[in-house]
């Protein structure tokens, strides 16, 4: 009798395994393309040779100094945004609850622009400001949404309100700045992985190495929270404590990614729903979501660099925005019909 259950679990694990394998292959293909294709294109054998340390001087420069940092940062930031979005959406049980919709990345933007335009800071200081901005805004939303507990819809509504506030603040700062500084701030605000430095990559990698295992430890509690606060409590989960811990992880992931690449639009918002749809088992699908996030980020950057007509080279954030906005419309159009969230 229990063989039925064993078999059923095995089918699901295999299904998720297949999806992960396919997504990983797609990601690998995009990474290889990003490294090989450009104004100076390499063949695959040349690329492999260069990566292994046997490249000529110009190949080393182009692949190792220009393209590899860029694609590495895109992968890591994509993973961080996607897992952050998955955590928010699951813990708050609302598909709109994602750091880019509820003002967490907006808070990072406001702080970064403030540091650039008013304090005259740049580089690492901008990243640190962005990180702190995300934390402050998230803490403010949490406190404002608290009524003896945090309900998902209240958190989202307050977050959307805060997102408008920080947006207004950013516009105010931009309108007061002189044109050249405002231009620099605008580029940061769209989000881009160009000009990636190894120090940024290291910071994001270290954060991921700490935060992702913590997410894995709390994944059992997340599965409980998916079924509602009461059902989770009945299973022995301390709901508010688990939710706070998961939100802290989610905010840290969004903050570190935004600090590194700017507020790349919609990756956090779309990755987990796409992954869940592809896996289709009702599980958390965190690994598939992370891969989808990395695929979208690297793919968007590739499209922005190479595939737009007329030699336009745009920041990746414009492409991710173009993917995310229609999804948001579709979600809003269908959400009421289904009457349910994530």
């Amino acid at each position: 009798m229990s063989a039925i259950i064993t078999a059923s679990r095995l089918i699901q694990r295999r299904r998720e395994g297949r999806v992960v394998a396919i997504l990983a292959a797609v990601l690998l293909a995009i990474v290889v393309l990003s490294l090989a294709v450009g104004a100076y294109s390499l063949s695959i054998p040349d690329l492999v040779r260069t990566l292994l340390g046997g490249g000529a001087g110009n190949e080393n420069f182009i692949v190792l100094k220009l393209r590899l940092p860029r694609v590495s940062l895109a992968v890591l930031a994509g993973v961080a945004f996607a897992v952050s979005g998955a955590l928010f959406q699951t813990v708050l049980r609302n598909p709109l609850a994602s750091p880019d919709i509820i003002g967490v990345t907006g808070g990072a933007s406001a702080a970064a622009v403030f540091s650039m335009l008013i304090l005259g800071l740049g580089g690492v200081a901008t990243s640190v400001s962005a990180f702190l901005g995300a934390l402050i805004v998230a803490a403010a939303i949490y406190v404002l949404a608290w009524r003896g507990g945090v309900a998902g819809y209240r958190f989202v509504l307050i977050g959307v309100g805060i997102a408008f506030m920080v947006q207004g603040f950013v516009s105010y700062l931009l309108s007061r700045a002189d044109l050249r500084n405002a231009q620099e701030a605008l580029v940061w605000l769209v989000g881009s992985v160009s000009g990636a430095r190894w120090q940024d990559i290291t910071v994001v990698a270290v954060f991921l190495a700490v935060l992702l295992p913590a997410v894995a430890v709390l994944s059992g509690r997340m599965r409980g929270l998916q079924m509602g606060d009461d059902a989770a409590s009945a299973l022995g989960i301390r709901v508010e404590r688990a939710r706070l811990a998961l939100l802290v992880l989610a905010v840290a992931l969004a903050a570190v990614a935004t600090a590194a690449v700017g507020p790349l639009a919609f990756i956090a918002f779309v990755s987990a729903p796409i992954a869940r749809r592809v896996v289709g088992t009702g599980g958390l699908a965190l690994l598939p979501a992370a891969l989808v996030g990395a695929i979208i980020t690297t793919g968007a950057d590739f499209v922005a660099q190479h595939l737009l007509p007329g030699d336009l080279q745009l920041p990746a954030g414009i492409v991710t925005g173009a993917i995310g906005a229609p999804y948001l419309l579709w979600l809003l159009a269908t959400a009421n019909r289904n009457g349910k969230g994530a």
Binding site: I4, I5, S8, R9, Q12, R93, G220, R223, G224, Q226, M227, G228, D230, A231, S233, A234, L235, G236, I237, R276, G280, T281, G282, G283, K340, A342
Partner: peptide, 26 residues
Amino acid sequence: VGLLPQQPIAPDGITVSDLVGRGRYP
């Protein structure tokens, strides 16, 4: 002590065996 709340939420796409398996959490 187990409790079945009034309106528990079944995650989208979840199978019966997976949902029931989540009862093993404690």
